[in-house]
């Protein structure tokens, strides 16, 4: 498994791998849920390395969103490559996630949500 983690205030930035597909979707789903269960309820998913995602990979994103929301937190995406963005928009995941161009914007948005 190939994820990275960075703390930015109350926000955990989780870097996802180049490919997010059926073969390892289960592992990533559990890993992100474990992060949320450990108390990181504001998560920014860094998609900048992801150049291919299938429907199982999309389900990892949805699972992460649900885990964060169930913990009274939130999740956001940033750094989507154009072709991945096209799939996110086709499947309307941008209706549930806030999507940002870069890490700073995503982290600021999530940190502000703790103030609100």
């Amino acid at each position: 498994m190939n994820i990275t983690r960075e703390e930015h205030g109350a926000v955990e930035v989780i870097g996802l791998p180049q490919r997010l597909t059926m073969s390892d979707a289960g592992e990533y789903r559990h890993a992100i849920r474990d992060i949320v269960d450990s108390g990181c309820k504001l998560i920014a998913l860094d998609m900048s390395r992801v150049d291919f995602v299938d429907s199982s990979g999309l389900s990892v994103l949805v699972s992460a969103y649900k885990a964060a929301r169930n913990a009274d937190g939130d999740a956001a995406l940033f750094g989507l490559q154009p072709q991945v963005r096209a799939l996110v928009e086709l499947t309307r995941l941008h209706h549930i996630f806030e999507v940002f161009a870069d890490k700073t914007s995503a982290v600021n948005h999530l940190n502000q949500s703790t103030v609100a």
Binding site: V62, L87, T91, R92
Partner: peptide, 22 residues
């Protein structure tokens, strides 16, 4: 058609809808 894509909150059922759309 692509209008039959599952609810965005669903964790299953997107594969064939993606094929139909693209």
């Amino acid at each position: 058609n692509s209008d039959e894509l599952p609810d965005p909150y669903s964790e299953r059922g997107r594969g064939l809808a993606i094929i139909r759309a693209w």
